[in-house]
């Protein structure tokens, strides 16, 4: 195992940030911690990167204990915090040089690991880090986290606030790194990114809701789920919320995802009901659950 987390808990005053968290990550696995702001993701990352003590429980990274062997962990992991934490006054190249030196290595020694990413920011190597665009900062931070060839990479919300194009490119980079046998623990509030991980833990309010492969998590969704659309979205949502057999209703892009309380759902009956509410162009079709549906069902 690359990362072992056993019964970790952490509280700040009266806020329970993490409650009895346990999971294991295999060597070379891309493992996602999926949850909204305030779920406890950053607290977990800080405990695993030896920057914070847990109140209870044990954790190891590459076989080392996060408390007693913290020095070994610091040498062998890469950490990209959620907030941009490089030196804004140093240039791109100086930042990279600095991190290489700190870890007793050189840019040349591990260049092949960062090459794919670094070539994209190399044209700006003399620019100060503070003057880079969001996407470029993110790439530089990833290079700095990789320059000492870590065994485990911790990425805390690397794509938050990043547009869909840059997000897609970032995940393509992660997939390539994974092939070099680096274990990656990554957190994100974007549920669509969960599908790109080998396994994920859904987390909310400091508790793990479920751990599995993205495919299995979607299969566990307990009910048939339907796409419903009509001429007026606002009226549709209100009408569905007032329907006597509703289990859940959530807007999903151009549709509403609807689930029914009963074992036998009657589409004709629902259509008649919606028509009685003066809605038109009504469509009701069976669809498949997404990670986000599962998350909302578990978090309800």
């Amino acid at each position: 195992m690359s990362i072992c987390v056993a019964n970790i808990s952490k509280s700040y005053k009266n806020v329970k940030a993490l409650q009895d968290i346990s999971f294991n990550v295999k060597v070379g696995e891309l493992f996602g911690i999926i949850g909204p702001d305030g779920a406890g993701k950053t607290t977990l990352f800080r405990i695993l990167t030896t920057l914070l003590f847990a109140d209870n429980g044990r954790a190891t990274v590459s076989g080392w204990d996060v408390v007693s062997d913290y020095k070994n962990i610091r040498k062998s992991v890469g950490y990209m915090p959620g907030r941009f934490s490089l030196y804004q006054d140093l240039t791109v190249e100086e930042n990279l040089q600095f991190f290489a030196t700190i870890f007793g290595t050189t840019i040349e020694e591990n260049y092949d690991l960062i090459k794919d990413i670094y070539v994209q920011i190399e044209p700006f190597k003399d620019r100060r880090a503070g003057k880079l665009s969001g996407g470029m900062k993110q790439k530089l931070a990833l290079c700095c986290a990789l320059i000492h060839k870590p065994k485990v990479l911790f990425l805390d919300e690397p794509t938050t606030g990043v547009d869909p194009v840059s997000r897609k490119e970032f995940w393509e980079m992660l997939k390539r790194l994974q092939q070099k046998n680096i274990t990656i623990l990554v957190s994100t509030p974007y549920m669509d990114e969960a599908a790109l991980c080998d396994r994920i833990a859904l987390i909310q309010d400091g508790k793990i809701l479920e751990i599995d492969t993205p495919e299995a998590i979607v299969k566990h969704y307990p009910k048939p789920i339907y796409n419903v659309s009509a001429n007026n979205m606002y009226k549709l949502i209100n009408s569905l919320n007032a329907y006597q057999y509703i289990h859940s209703v959530y807007p999903f892009g151009e549709f509403v995802h609807y689930t029914d309380k009963r074992a036998e759902f009657n589409a004709v009956e629902l259509k008649l009901y919606l028509e009685s509410k003066n809605l038109s162009n009504i469509r009701i079709e069976k669809t498949v659950a997404t990670i986000e549906d599962t998350f909302m069902e578990l978090a309800k």
Binding site: P36, A39, E292, A299
Partner: peptide
């Protein structure tokens, strides 16, 4: 809605 949980995000859109 950046970083907001999926249920609240939908309540926000309502």
């Amino acid at each position: 809605t950046g970083g907001v949980d999926p249920i609240t995000r939908r309540q926000f859109w309502e």
